[in-house]
């Protein structure tokens, strides 16, 4: 098959990629080192591969890489609250997940965090139904979602508090 050239903004940086026409965005991202984008089911049902494309959380396993051409993609590697001492600092969602013990094996976690980020970016104070809508595409088999739920609710509350002040 003939390789194809595309370009998109990846975690803020405009980059060019040579891709196979049938390559999935998930495969491209993992191939170039973005291993935080996890392979779970390759059928868009588990959300482990969630990235943000132009503000929306999407399953990168369902999208062909060429469909990202000209778009803006954010992966878990592009999520942080800054850089210090050789390491990225956790953003507030990552921080809350750790504090709430909302992750166990951690395999679904990057996907959940990307879905949550897309949600909070759009709506900092989501109600219960909004949280359910935005996380509907993500599966976790370890936590029973109880602590993921409380982490997301806590953040919503915190944002509300902040706004009040």
């Amino acid at each position: 098959m003939v390789k194809k050239k595309i370009s998109f903004r990846l975690n803020g940086e405009l980059r060019e990629f040579e891709i196979e026409p049938n390559e999935k965005l998930l495969e491209l991202l993992r191939r170039i080192g973005y291993k935080g984008v996890k392979y779970g089911c390759l059928e868009g049902m588990c959300g482990s591969c969630t990235v943000i494309m132009n503000g929306k959380a999407i399953a990168s396993c369902l999208l062909y890489a060429f469909q990202a051409d000209g778009k803006e993609i954010t992966t878990i590697e592009g999520v942080s609250a800054g850089f210090a001492d050789g390491c990225n600092l956790p953003n507030e969602i990552q921080d809350e997940f750790i504090k709430e013990h909302a992750l166990q094996c951690g395999y679904c976690t990057p996907g959940f965090i990307m879905s949550a980020k897309a949600m909070f970016d759009e709506n900092p104070i989501p109600d219960d139904e909004t949280i359910k809508i935005y996380t509907d595409g993500n599966r976790c088999r370890c936590t029973g979602y109880e602590k993921i739920w409380s982490a997301l609710k806590n953040l919503s509350e915190k944002h509300k508090e902040k706004l009040r002040r």
């Binding site: 935080g36 996890k38 997940f97 951690g106």
Partner: peptide
């Protein structure tokens, strides 16, 4: 909190 929580939440190659 999990001692490996941060790198997991950051999607490091683990």
């Amino acid at each position: 909190s999990k001692i490996d929580g941060l790198p997991l939440a950051q999607g490091k190659s683990l």
